[in-house]
């Protein structure tokens, strides 16, 4: 079982409270996922010629600053390192591809959780409240964020198996459910040159959508294609640079509820996570229909 949540703010005035609201939503899903939790927050955009990476190493004393120094030297670029528990947010004055390639090659012990120009990804073991506190989620501002709480049933409780999964710059996915054709789909994607980090079915979904987006599909088109190609049970929430999407399989066994006001759109596995959002009493609340693509984008909201 898992819990997923997503919050998309239409009203810029609410942005300073993004983290505080997401924290309440995440903690609301503790009963559905007490083993580990993960969040992706869209905020603090870097300059156009910069990228930022969220990286992880299990050792809380990992020498991130030393890695940052080596990276700066290797790419001849400015590097800024911000350490948060066993994660680090590394801002690099270089293209995201070369920064990632250098870390993967020179420090294979480090895991890159997320990359792009906006998105930061934190995932860790423990109760959602503890994970939120460890990474100071409450104080984070931003436009949108998604989160996941995991109750492990099929694979180990590790940071690697926690969601969100990232497969493209500023793109991430959380999943409640299980895919039945993930082995075939992984093979199909590998033949097209994609690489995988885990044996997890949700990673396959994330890479599948990234592949479709890479082909030039819009977010809605990529999700429509997923309805044809993904077999199994799923409620997905996906974050991209300027948007937020929700998709459920045609059978709709995995729960989901959406709520919308003039100020925000929120999704959660159960209403409990939405109960404390401002103005939720008067929100439009409904269960998203099976096999229907729901998307919201910052351009539309503006």
């Amino acid at each position: 079982m898992c819990g997923i949540v997503g919050l998309f703010l239409k009203k810029p005035e609410l942005r300073p409270q993004l983290g505080a609201h997401l924290q309440t939503m995440l903690v609301g899903m503790t009963d559905r996922g007490p083993d580990s939790a993960g969040i992706a927050v869209y905020h603090r955009p870097v300059e156009a010629n910069q990228c930022k990476l969220t990286t992880f190493h299990a050792n809380p004393d990992y020498p991130w600053r030393k890695l940052g120094g080596q990276l700066a030297e290797a790419l001849n670029a400015e590097v800024d390192v911000e350490i948060k528990a066993n994660h680090a947010v590394i801002t690099v004055g270089a293209a995201e591809g070369s920064a990632r390639a250098w870390i993967t090659r020179s420090h294979p012990e480090v895991r890159i959780m997320g990359y792009g120009q906006l998105m930061e990804v934190y995932k860790d073991m423990g109760l959602p409240a503890d994970v939120a506190r460890r990474y100071s989620l409450e104080g984070m501002e931003g436009s949108h964020a998604i989160g996941h709480t995991r109750m492990a049933t099929e694979s180990a409780v590790t940071t690697e198996h926690s969601h969100p999964f990232t497969a493209a710059p500023d793109m991430c996915l959380v999943h409640n459910g299980s895919l039945s054709n993930h082995n075939n789909l992984r093979k199909w994607l590998r033949r097209r040159g994609l690489e995988f980090e885990t044996d997890n079915d949700s990673e396959v979904a994330a890479r599948y959508f990234a592949y479709r987006l890479g082909e030039g599909a819009t977010l809605a088109e990529a999700l429509e294609a997923g309805l044809r190609d993904l077999d199994g049970f799923y409620t997905f929430t996906m974050g991209t640079r300027d948007g937020f999407a929700v998709l459920r399989d045609g059978i709709a066994c995995k729960p989901a509820v959406l709520a919308e006001t003039d100020d925000w759109v929120a999704m959660a596995s159960e209403f409990r996570s939405l109960a404390n959002l401002p103005g939720v009493e008067k929100a439009n609340i409904w269960e998203p229909e099976p096999a229907v693509v729901y998307t919201w984008s910052l351009q539309e909201a503006a």
């Binding site: 159960e270 209403f271 409990r272 939405l274 109960a275 939720v280 009493e281 609340i285």
Partner: peptide
């Protein structure tokens, strides 16, 4: 009368 939104 249950005043508001409920769970399962």
């Amino acid at each position: 009368e249950i005043d508001g939104h409920v769970g399962y």
